[in-house]
Nucleic acid binder design. Structure first.
Lengths: 157, 157
DNA sequence: ACGAATGTTCAGTCTTGACTGAACGAACCG
DNA sequence: CGGTTCGTTCAGTCAAGACTGAACATTCGT
């Protein structure tokens, strides 16, 4: 092949794909692009740098880096003698995502469970259906926990 | 307590909560309400019936029941000598949801993996980060499979 | 002190998609 | 046949929220 590492186009298409992927998870497209770019590029990137590279306003980058930071998917890095903030991929973005998923599931499980309790001793069919749904979420939760352990052993990601 | 089974209000608040919950999963709010109602109520419900009960248009119910049906979360029921369609909770809505989740994860995993392949033998750091992310998704996938088995044994839900 | 650079915030625009009403086709009833 | 009752579809409305540009506060260099 003529160019084993023509990164620019490849990277760009990946970054866009990550943007769309994030959108499906009801997260801002730009957050996905930032995350995707930081996954591929070496070393921390500044806000201005990200804005130019992604052709997006600094405001958007500022907002979305903060979002990603809160979720533990990227980290803010500062250097002595440099006023700027830099961003890089977090310590274990994957685990943060599992954690987030776990949280969401717990909420829905709680909703089902409290509803079943409220039905007290009437509507046995409904209670049974609710219980079944709860079991699914419980299995899902314990599955995530299991994955968590498995990954923490091998080394975090 | 005076009324152990004052269902109406309780049901309504649950139905609305399910609507909001579905919205967080980037699904239409009405789909969540339909699913929530069918979880609680006994026996299949007609389209008109659902529309009135939820105070939404028949068009919305039609669209969203089809969506839920495609996902295997509810079932369409027909009766001999009755032109109408009725809907009830699916055989195993929970498993369908796990299946859907599994599908989504596979897509992202594929995205990461193909990108890593494209990077061939350059950008070792990036490749390593991608590989780490892949491992998380793999663990997640196998976790879901595990949950699947566990539930299929006990009896589907 | 002044000007430039940096990150954040906020009002405003714009896109996306949920939801509706109305129109439609099909199946039934008299 | 009309007249109903279904379910679906489609154009149009509306709301949510992503994104932007401009204004701002802060910090630095000169």
């Amino acid at each position: 092949m003529t160019d084993a590492c023509s990164r620019e186009e490849t990277i760009q298409s990946f970054v866009e794909a990550m943007g769309r992927d994030f959108e499906k998870e009801s997260m801002p497209r730009i957050a996905g692009r930032v995350f995707g770019l930081l996954l591929l590029e070496t070393g921390p990137h500044g806000l201005q740098q990200l804005a130019e590279r992604l052709r997006v306003s600094r405001a958007s980058v500022s907002t979305n880096t903060r979002l990603l930071e809160e979720r533990g998917m990227i980290e803010r890095v500062t250097l002595p003698g440099d006023r700027r903030d830099y961003y890089r991929i977090g310590e274990a973005p994957g685990l943060s995502m599992l954690d987030k998923a776990s949280e969401r599931i717990r909420v829905t499980h709680q909703l089902l469970s409290s509803m079943r309790y409220r039905l007290a001793d009437c509507a046995p069919e409904a209670r049974s259906r609710l219980r079944s749904m709860e079991r699914v979420y419980e299995a899902f939760l314990s599955a995530i926990d299991h994955a968590f352990d498995e990954l923490s052993d091998t080394g975090p990601a």
